[in-house]
Design a binder for these strands. Structure first.
Lengths: 321, 321
DNA sequence: TCAGTTATACTCAAATAGAGCATAATAGGG
DNA sequence: CCCTATTATGCTCTATTTGAGTATAACTGA
């Protein structure tokens, strides 16, 4: 049934030339604890869990789960693929390295401190991304002036104009709104403008400007940015937030989690309206009287919505204020 | 700066265990010609262009471009990554095969017929996906009865219920709307229910039911479904349709292209309203008097929107009728 | 009992989306 | 030249959806 062209192609896939490939699995594992989004790291909080895809692994996903558990002891729940990229291995040999990155969502267990891994607030890496308490001072004070200076230092007029527009768009300048999804674009601009530590590595320019945000090894911070961007996009149309919630929760807790992820505040009443009218949750019957004020009903996620609509829709109101 | 845990991890990536990996690049290349979406195929229109990622390739993308050009002579414009998956190589050796799939958008050049490749309407592979002329007869006549029968043949009550719900959701039964984005979910249901030819391959069940849609080798039809789903989703929030358009076009031509992709019709006046108010296009000044009726203005895509908003938004009105 | 705080129910207006009507500008056939 | 068919284009109208604000309700702690 298979024809010759096809056979030839598939045959080629098995011959020598493609042998020098190794595949790494890299995990961006997120939890939200006490209203802060956190990422699972290893080393000195400067690396994401990762390891090679091996013959023993039944699938990419199971290989990833195995690595994360081995390195951090933390079992993974929900995971989804982020992106695959290839790098010529920098250590000199002819090997080509393929990295397949995943986004994982869990809840941070009451685990012991460990020297080999830990949870770290993601805004440590991206301090300019948290707009819950208004625009972070670092933006107008440091980043924007430097970004604009970088844009203006371009010789070519078109390049200058292009840089300015990209900055304005990514950082919501002029009359534009801040778009919390553009995490990756912002990181890349900062990288291009050499305003993150990673940018200095390859080069020999000796200007170690004090530069914001904790760096990571290799391109791990970039991968983290990709994961954050994906998550910020996805919570708006899929019920993934619930992967980060305990079995029962109040609507305010749910709201705080969404706000933590989005890095911006939400209109409380509208948030409730949207959640309720979508039938995403049901009351447990209990009520919580924790932080002063009227006790809140507790809810649980209606697991059935996952069955009903495998690709269910969820909407979240992210106000502009 | 790097700590030991990390070094050890990255070291592991280079040792023996991960050596037996080869990476394939697979392309879903789409064009829209005469109001029909078409996919670039090789062989007897039963395979997607693909080939191994090799040392000579500068990047995954350039490797993909090289393979597509070599196999089809067709240069690629816009491409984006779709998904990466791994299979144990079925030919018996211990090799693990990683496939990285891409979506490419171009325009079909006035090329010669070729025995080794060609363009094929994508609805040949998914006849149930074209709802432009109403619900395709194949759905009520063949697929729905068989799908429901498949759901009911489950022993377990919960499984039965779950199957029914998935079918109802994916195919828009009862009061639900048809959701054109669920291409992959529908294909997977049909696969599970053994209603596509590919499903019979691994098994020895000898019931070669007449089954709809042209099959492809391996999992290529599944990859194509992934690409179609991605494209149908993406045209709603990114200005990617224009990659498929000639330099100048009328609004109706643009509309027909969108309809071809979405597999459903669009409200003409609202379509224009949306396109125009988003400043996506500008008049060329010319006018077309082709198919009877009042001549239409010709437009071109405002290339600057790509610069203005690297991740620009686009909205399209997909009516329910 | 009062002040502070959160929960929850509603109301209102602006923006968006879905549909339909009306008019304009062509080609082609009596 | 007039009439008909056909597509282009401009506008109106209504139902929804979204963003925001007001008004109560139900607790805790002083």
């Amino acid at each position: 049934m298979q024809d010759k062209t096809t056979q030839a192609t598939r045959q080629a896939a098995r011959n020598n030339r493609s042998r020098a490939v190794s595949a790494d699995l890299i995990a961006v594992v997120i939890a939200v604890t006490n209203g802060e989004p956190r990422v699972l790291t290893i080393g000195h909080a400067d690396a994401l869990p990762s390891g090679p895809f091996e013959l023993g692994h039944r699938s990419l996903q199971s290989g990833l789960r195995a690595w994360v558990e081995r390195q951090t002891g933390h079992p993974l729940g929900y995971i989804e693929q982020l992106y695959t990229f290839a790098d010529r291995d920098r250590t000199g040999d002819e090997r080509v390295q393929i990295s397949i990155s995943y986004l994982g969502l869990t809840r941070e267990e009451q685990t012991e401190r460990s020297p080999t891994h830990g949870w770290r607030g993601w805004y440590d890496y991206f301090p300019w991304e948290d707009h819950r308490a208004g625009v972070p001072p670092i933006l107008p004070a440091i980043l924007m002036p430097r970004l604009l200076a970088w844009a203006d230092e371009a010789e070519d007029m078109n390049l200058r104009h292009n840089r300015r527009q990209r900055v304005a768009y990514a950082f919501g300048l002029d009359d534009r709104d801040w778009n919390e999804e553009l995490v990756l674009q912002r990181y890349e601009l900062l990288y291009e403008a050499a305003l993150v530590a990673e940018a200095a590595r390859g080069r020999d320019n000796g200007s170690p400007l004090s530069v914001p945000g904790r760096p990571m090894i290799a391109d791990h911070r970039r991968i983290l940015a990709t994961g954050i961007a994906r998550l910020r996009t996805k919570i708006k149309y899929r019920p993934v937030v619930f992967e980060l919630m305990p079995p029962a929760f109040t609507l305010l807790q749910l709201q705080r989690t969404v706000e933590a992820l989005a890095g911006r505040l939400v209109h409380k009443q509208n948030f409730r309206r949207l959640i309720e009218q979508q039938d995403l949750v049901e009351e447990t019957g209990e009520t919580m009287s924790d932080t002063g004020g009227r006790p809140a009903k507790r809810f649980r996620f209606r697991q059935t919505v996952l069955a009903e609509r495998t690709v269910a829709g969820t909407k979240l109101p992210l106000s502009r204020a």
